[in-house]
């Protein structure tokens, strides 16, 4: 009954747009998928877009922290983007600290931050120009 959250690869960054309220199974499955994709693609950054997420409770907060910590061990940096102001207020009142997670305002800033993290070698430049691939199947924007 878990909903599948897509993981997109853009250059050497995995983009994870979370668009629905997730149950716990989905959260755990997402955690697994991100780590598997990191291993499969050798991506160096994870960008989690929560701009459509209306609620971050302690479980989801912990999941975000965990993903960041695990990704760090796999040599990738995690950035959470697009948190709604109301969610931010709630997080602070709840007393939740997203330890080890970088947050930025929007996707553009997130990509910029992650790009700055690793040196753009030839390989990087090449894959960045390729467009983006979706779960391994690559197709070009037209």
């Amino acid at each position: 009954m878990a909903i599948k959250i897509p993981i997109l690869k853009v250059g050497r960054v995995l983009v994870v747009p979370i668009q629905v309220d997730m149950d716990d199974a989905t959260v755990l499955q997402l955690q697994d998928s991100i780590l598997n994709e990191l291993e499969r693609t050798g991506a160096r950054g994870v960008l989690i877009d929560i701009s459509l997420l209306e609620m971050v409770d302690s479980f989801i907060g912990r999941m975000l922290s965990d993903i960041a910590a695990m990704a760090r061990i796999m040599d990738a940096r995690t950035v959470v983007v697009g948190m709604q102001p109301a969610v931010a207020i709630t997080l602070v009142e709840l007393g939740l600290e997203l330890g080890g997670v970088d947050t930025v305002l929007n996707v553009d800033e997130g990509i910029k931050l992650l790009r700055g993290e690793f040196v753009l070698d030839d390989d990087d430049a090449a894959s960045a120009n390729e467009g983006f691939s979706f779960s391994g199947e690559s197709f070009h924007r037209s």
Binding site: S58, F59, E97
Partner: peptide
Amino acid sequence: SGMGVGLGG
């Protein structure tokens, strides 16, 4: 499982 902030939060 969570971050221990449930009730206090």
